[in-house]
């Protein structure tokens, strides 16, 4: 070393007197590094990497399962929706048919009632007309008798009545 420094141009790399020292410390360093790396650092980092790879693949598998489940749930939902729609349509149809039946019954009942009322009213009207006709005939007979009496002619009441009835019947005809 002193020689190299002395002539100032030598390479310290070729100063063989320092070789044992360098080699000794190099071997010590390499052994220490090897022990640190192989005992502590590499197993630790390796296990972390393996753990991460395991976690990631597990997560991917779980995500796949969840996706599957979601697809199944969606299918089930759609199936349920279809069933509910069909059931609703059925219920609506049934309700409509029931209402229709009720309605028909009510209409029929109302028609019957209307028919009954109409018949009854016609009977009443007929009765009223009959009684009115009778009353008109009576009034006409009375009036004819009075008129005949007023002309001072004594006429047979029965003949007058018969003449009036005949006229009335002709008029009615």
């Amino acid at each position: 070393m002193a020689d190299n420094a002395g002539n100032g141009v030598g390479m310290p790399q070729l100063d063989f007197s320092t070789f044992p020292n360098q080699i000794f410390w190099l071997v010590v360093t390499l052994v220490v590094l090897y022990l640190i790396l192989s005992r502590v650092a590499l197993p630790r980092i390796g296990s972390v990497l393996a753990e991460r790879a395991g976690t990631i693949s597990n997560d991917i598998a779980a995500a796949e399962t969840y996706k599957q489940q979601a697809a199944e749930a969606e299918a089930a939902y759609h199936r349920a929706l279809e069933e509910a729609r069909a059931a609703a349509a059925r219920v609506v149809d049934e309700a409509r048919a029931e209402i229709q039946a009720d309605l028909d019954a009510a209409i029929a009942k109302a028609d019957a009632e209307i028919a009954a009322r109409a018949a009854e009213s016609e009977q009443k009207i007929a009765a009223i007309r009959d009684s009115a006709d009778a009353a008109v005939a009576e009034v006409a007979r009375d009036a004819a008798r009075e008129i005949v009496a007023a002309f001072g002619i004594s006429a047979d009441a029965t003949a007058v009545d018969a003449a009036v009835d005949e006229r009335l019947q002709r008029g009615a005809a």
């Binding site: 070393m1 420094a5 390479m11 310290p12 790399q13 100063d15 020292n21």
Partner: peptide, 9 residues
């Protein structure tokens, strides 16, 4: 002295 840095001391 570019080589001085390589001296073992």
């Amino acid at each position: 002295r570019p080589m001085d840095q390589f001296e073992v001391r």
